[in-house]
Write a protein that binds this DNA or RNA. Sequence first.
DNA 1: CGGTTGACCAAGT
DNA 2: GACTTGGCCAACC
Length: 105
Amino acid sequence: MTPLAIKVYSLLDTVPHGKVTTYKALAQAAGTKAYRAIGQIMKHNPNAPATPCHRVVASNGSLGGFMGKTDKKTLQKKIDLLRSEGVAVKNNRILNFSNIYHSFS
DNA sequence: CGGTTGACCAAGT
DNA sequence: GACTTGGCCAACC
């Protein structure tokens, strides 16, 4: 558990179900600019089910391998979770992304 | 303490 | 619209 991770998890907890946010927004809200570090935290995901990393997407709203390449199984799982929460996902992309995007402002 | 590594981003080609 | 470049910052070795 890293200090940054704690902030990120707290922020994730504030994101309502059926909505998503971006690494950038998380970093910003966490008071840092380490988008990349957050990505690592998510993939390690020490808090497994308690950490809804599936609610975090790239700034362009794509899930098909956040950076472009990721384990399909992991990805598909997250997509399933998102759809369970009411998030429309198509072709590994978020539909109505701007509509369900949650910002911390 | 320096170098490598990202589930990234923005801008340029 | 797809690909490359440089920069960003935390975590790991």
